[in-house]
Design a protein around this nucleic acid. Structure first.
Length: 553
RNA sequence: GCGCCCAUAGCUCAAUUGGAUAGAGCGUUUGACUACGAAUCAAAAGGUUAGAGGUUCAACUCCUCUUGGGCGCGCCA
């Protein structure tokens, strides 16, 4: 929170300064500068680049501007600035008063798991739609990456006060469902002793056989079985259970069948109505016996088919109706997580958002690169149909939910990555996630030990926390809010893994230099409060990533 | 052929969206447990940010081109 406070105060100072210097108001209105944590070698808490940016407009030396600003800062921000100096090309380097850090420490201890949360965003109803894998087989490791990113992003947005709904769109319509039903049926017949060959392009996984086995065990007659329903039922149960083990739970499961098959009193489906809506406003048109979406009007490469010549709708038609449905449910901001192999789809769905009367910005598509699986240097095939895939469950069982989620969130979504299974297994005990979790375990160990003392106070003097290690640690704690802000701006939760590792680093350094339980009761009490704040932040941060924070390891 | 994404230490990846001497983990080398957990700490080595231009006070970051990789270009989903 410290950085935000300082940025707000400086913003007023700098804008007033620019006004006094006679810069025109349009420029001042749009002017923005940054407050940042300087590199390690610089002895300062924050660096401000406003002087360098203003100097050009004022046609003067940035260092002169910096000097003038510093005078104002001392005058107007006496509670914050202990020192301010000009550095480099014209940076203003700020040194904070320790009292600012103590105040923030106190805030963490009071607000606990609510620290960093906001209420201002609650008007925005956000939908995060992710995973949305076809219910034709268990989730594989690539889905896991989307699940980790989507779920964590939702947690971050929730913490920032947005009204967030996590939704899974179930593609239970289309050719692949017919193939699925047929695959189970053939397995069923084979198990009954019939000598027939399996489908060339059927789903070959063992789970298909398991579904057939269940149906046989239930003594069902082949003519009474709805193979599609039975298959989806079992597969969905598996998907839900695998996701739960991965700490992912959805608020809503939305079936494509609902908008494709359910009819209103006029006998129309939502897909029918969506297409009519587009046709009425000339965003869809008939040609060559098919219905086309005029997506080129909004920047797509070519127009796309909504309804085939044989009268069947395409997947896109369902998707138009689905997004229309999202808006009708009151969502103002849509976030879709797609595997990067769907990037060609972004332009047409963006076009349809605009045709529905919403701005391009109402939809944010996050593309994550697919995970290439490697085992002992050999690429592993990832086709569901070949039956030769690595499931999310397998990996979670092997390396653990926490390590798996943390690893996926270590990287930006658009970075490609090879996931070597042998390596992942080998590194289990050396994974960075343990480095972070160990902080919490160490703190709790100290808490347990401190229970034996009766000379401690619960309202200690924070002013005793004045070593470099303690100061660095407190600064890092307050940067929790900055990390939230970055995640919000970039719509990616991966900055939190880096932040937590840095915080852990600060803690372990502090631990080496500053003994918590000493024969000085006052200092001991203060440091206990400090590490209590550390556990608050570590737990908050890990929770945003969906990773646990055990008290013992 | 057209389009999107990527290229950073031996390996896997960051870099607060344009800031100061590009950082972590793993691996390598060397030290530190008779006081709170050594799953830790301290130190060393490791880089022309794929290459070439450009934009500016400042470029890993933005623009152009080249090279190399991933993906997409269906009346499939």
């Amino acid at each position: 929170m410290i950085k935000q406070q300082i940025t707000e105060k400086l913003d007023l100072i700098v804008k007033q300064y620019a006004k006094d210097k006679g810069l025109d108001s349009a420029f001042i209105e749009n002017f923005s500068f940054t407050v940042e944590v300087p590199p390690k070698n610089i002895e300062a808490d924050f660096a401000v680049n406003a002087a360098m940016l203003l100097a050009k407009q004022l046609k003067t030396n940035p260092r002169n501007v910096a000097a003038e600003l510093i005078n104002i800062i001392f005058k107007d921000m006496p509670d914050f600035a202990a020192k301010a100096e000009i550095a480099g090309a014209g940076f203003i380097n700020l040194h904070l008063k320790n009292e600012v850090l103590y105040e923030e420490l106190n805030r963490i201890l009071i607000e606990k798991e609510k620290y960093g949360s906001k209420t201002a965003n609650n008007k925005d109803k956000v939908m995060v739609e992710f995973v949305s894998a076809n219910p034709t087989g268990p989730l594989h490791i690539g889905h896991g990456r989307g699940a980790a990113i989507g779920d964590s992003l939702a947690r971050v947005l929730k913490h920032l006060g947005y009204n967030v709904t996590k939704e899974y769109y179930l593609n239970d319509v289309g050719n692949q469902m017919l193939v699925l039903a047929e695959s189970v049926k053939v397995r069923f017949m084979q198990l009954k002793g019939e000598n027939i060959l399996f489908l060339e392009d059927g789903y070959k996984g063992e789970y298909i056989v398991d579904i057939a086995k269940r149906l046989i065990a239930e003594g069902k007659n082949i003519n009474d079985i709805n193979f599609k329903e039975e298959a989806v039922k079992d597969i969905l149960a598996t998907i839900k259970s695998d996701l739960k083990d991965f700490a992912v739970e959805f608020d809503n499961w939305f079936s494509e069948g609902k908008i494709a098959f359910n009819k209103d009193k006029d006998g129309k489906t939502e897909v029918d109505k969506a297409c009519e809506f587009l046709k009425d406003k000339s965003d869809a048109y008939e040609q060559d016996g098919a219905l086309w979406l005029a997506s080129t009007k909004y920047g797509d490469d070519k127009d796309r088919v909504l309804k085939r010549t044989d009268g069947r709708y395409t997947y896109l038609a369902s998707d138009v109706a689905y997004h229309k449905n999202k808006f009708e449910r009151g969502f103002t901001k849509l976030v879709n997580l797609w595997g990067a192999d769907h990037h060609g789809y972004v332009a047409r769905i963006s076009a349809c958002i605009q045709m529905l009367g919403f701005s391009k910005e109402a939809l944010k598509v996050i593309l994550y690169q697919l995970v290439s699986l490697v085992r002992g240097g050999q690429p592993v095939a990832m086709s569901t149909r070949s039956g030769e895939f690595i499931t999310l469950k397998e990996v979670v069982d092997e390396v653990g939910k926490d390590a798996c989620r943390f690893s996926f969130l270590l990287r930006a979504p658009d970075s490609q990555l090879d996931f070597d299974l042998e390596l992942a297994k080998k590194q289990t005990s050396e994974n960075p996630v343990f480095y972070v979790q160990y902080v919490n375990a160490r703190c709790n160990s100290i808490f347990r030990e401190s229970k034996n003392r009766n000379d401690l106070t619960d309202s200690p003097d924070f002013a005793l926390l004045n070593t470099k290690e303690e100061r660095d640690l407190m600064k890092k704690l307050s940067a929790f809010c900055d990390t939230l802000a970055v995640c919000e701006k970039t719509m990616s939760p991966h900055h939190f893994t880096a932040y937590l590792m840095e915080l852990a680093d600060m803690y372990h350094k502090f631990y080496e230099k500053c003994r918590v339980l000493s024969d000085d009761p006052a200092l001991t009490s203060s440091r206990l409060k400090l590490i209590e704040a550390v556990t608050v932040i570590i737990k908050n941060g890990l929770n945003l990533l969906g990773v646990s924070a055990p008290e013992k390891m």
